[in-house]
Amino acid sequence: MSRIAGLFARKSSVFIGFTVAGDPGIEASFGVAKTMIDAGADLLEIAVPYADPVADGPVIERAHVRALRAGTTPDDVFALVRELRGYAPALPLVLFTYHNIIHRRGPDRFFSEAAAAGADGVLIVDLPVEESGEVAPYAARYGIDRIALIAPTTSPERQHAILSGASGFVYLISLEGVTGERDRLPPGIAGLVGAVREKTGLPLAVGFGVSRPEHVRTVADAGANGVIVGSALVRLIEEHAGDEAGMQDALRAAIATLRRGLVPDPEPDMPRRERVEG
């Protein structure tokens, strides 16, 4: 069983943290990811920095800019994944990337390097199902899950097409818009989760806009298997620039608070590593 499938089989409610590799710096990035894992992230999405992240709102875009200014390249991203794989052998790691990174490197090389580094899945934010034939054979060859995206605007026909090539879990976009914190989530989440649930046995995780414990609860109550938090964590990195200890404290506190919205774990206070490895 893959790490992703194993995680969702073990837990009914999964907390997924997001970070841009190389934010706020190449070295500091490992500390950020490690803190998220220690604080209770069950799965990490690691974004490959990209200069034109059109699906992202201002908070995550600035993180891409910080990472690029720090000189982060895809090589550094794979190195980070390798390091995290060593730190948390059982924790699923998903690369979140824009397609030109893969196109430029060549999909064969990209997926082989991703697999060698220890990534479990790849999510390509600007590669809709119509174009996904370019990468599908390579993802399959190297045993990498292709995490599919479904939006509130995705028609039922497209949902079918998207799900037919998906593996790992399905990323449901909660709202019409880019990533970023919102005061409240739109009311249609339960409907979207329910509609997709009828079409697939894959786990469903909801992201975009999720930034408060009550949002996490809304998503869990909607029947999703996981919740993805990005901007609300990335913002803390920006706010604590130059203060690594303060940043890690803030991340720990935020994840602890957000996790309270999840369906309670049987042993909520047990440290993450022991739980994964034990």
């Binding site: 059109v54 699906a55 397609h99 934010v125 600007d126 590669l127 809709p128 119509e130 174009e131 995206l149 479904i150 939006a151 509130p152 605007t153 995705t154 028609s155 497209r158 998207i162 976009i173 019409e176 818009g177």
Partner: peptide
Amino acid sequence: GGQYVPETLMSALIE
């Protein structure tokens, strides 16, 4: 050419 866009935009491009 092609359509390398986030999924949310696909419905608008199809329309």
